[in-house]
Amino acid sequence: MRFSYYPGCTLKTTAALLENSALKAARALGIELIEQEKWQCCGAVFPLAALEIAPFLSSVRSLAAAKDTGEKLVTICAACYHVLKRANHVMKTDRDVCTKANNYLQLPEQYRGGTEVIHYLELLRDEVGFPTLARKVKKPLTGRKIAAFYGCLLLRPPAVMQFDNAENPSIMEDFLHALGAAAVDYPYRTECCGVYLSVQNEEIVAEMVAKIINSALSHGAEAIVDACPLCHYNLLELQKKTPQGKSTLPVYYFTELLEEALDLKDKVEEKMAF
């Protein structure tokens, strides 16, 4: 299985943990993720104004490059996934923007939204398959009570993202079950963590995080798992500043658990050893 891979800037820096564990697991599962050659930052937020095309262009370049190789474009960061998928949707549905973007980029071939953007979780679900994944698990996370946190970017707006049932998703829980863990269901799993508000309004975010953490705790969670560097930061750092004081619920990237269950943790990979 071969896919184009778009890492994004955060995975190359603060969220290196997310990338490393994901790539390790991919290799173990026999998935080839070919990093795109000249990727640029996706812009981190999808431009909501119907006006301009400039903020799209870097996304469109990556999408077009993936189309040239004929591969699906895989992302691991929820924000990159969100931006690329929405940019692609615009290219597919808005003729005006599509024409402008094509004119501007002067690509060898016109790009009209032909690439399929998928998230690493979808890769596991639809390409590998959770039953297959379950069979490949070496150290099942039996008995671990883990709460999945979806946040916003994977799910919303539902009509465009079409990632899962936006109000009642199950992909992360199914993933946890495949790893042998017990998924904790709690009502805050699709709420917003506060995103970049933490840059300016830490108190607001701390309060939002508190609700999420408390809900997970009160439903018996022993850890929380997410798929987004920003959620990760907010959940991890700001739970220390919650009004009630310092709750300490461990926060993992979903790929960290994958790595653990596939028994890749602490193992120096052969490739890296060379």
Partner: peptide, 11 residues
């Protein structure tokens, strides 16, 4: 009501 998960119907 499958698409209206926010009401916790069925949950």
């Amino acid at each position: 009501l499958d698409d209206f998960g926010e009401y916790s119907y069925g949950k």
